[in-house]
Amino acid sequence: MFHWLEKNPFFFAVGVFLVIAFAGLVEILPNFAEASRPVAGLRPYTVLELAGKEVYKKDNCIACHSQLIRPFKAETDRYGQYSLSGEYAYDRPFLWGSKRTGPDLHRVGNYRTTEWHENHMWDPTSVVPGSIMPAYKHQFTNIADIATAYAEAVTVKNAFHTPYGDDIQPGKKAFEAYKPKVLAEAKKIAAQMKNKDVKDAVAAGKIPEVVALIAYLNSLGTSRYDAKSK
């Protein structure tokens, strides 16, 4: 058998493939059904929050912030209840990160406010002296891409049965009809902010990136499945 493999590069390649594929088959596939179940009562991200998640991805917050609280006292004291698999059921992609140059954000919505985030994104050292995080002032003028976020909601609803309402439907018309709901949600956040450009933009029907990002950050935590928490 070995002699034959050494002489036949093609079957040799098949052999290599089987050996390396084996670990994947055993380790990964069978776990799929179990690991994708949401915790009881978990709601999916709203379209505005999805748009905020896109800002989070675009400015690559994951480079410095994790979203995974490990089951150690030092971590639960600092960040709150450790993370559960079911909390990530609607996270596509997962945003656990691999480096904490800044603190974990998985429950940041439980203990930070819109105002705090606004100050922090404008100038991190104003609320955290000594911070090495860059300011993200461009998020106050760049307009968030709501259409793409809406398209994502439609996609996950149809492809993966994520429980969105009947008003999330494919097509430009359905999107136009849905837009006012996103704007209404954005207005609530803008009302708590002080930046004039942001307020003007939202009043004019545009949603700056920072508003979407704050909506997303506020949704991180237990509030998406536990009404009692803030």
Binding site: I28, E54, Y90, A147, A151, E152, V154
Partner: peptide, 27 residues
């Protein structure tokens, strides 16, 4: 997402087939 949602949004955007813990494992 552009194709799955009937021509809405950015053509560059896509959404992972896996979610949460599964996505982490595959990644």
């Amino acid at each position: 997402t552009y194709f799955a949602a009937g021509g809405v949004g950015s053509i560059m955007h896509s959404v992972s087939m896996y979610s949460g813990t599964n996505d982490a494992l595959v990644q």
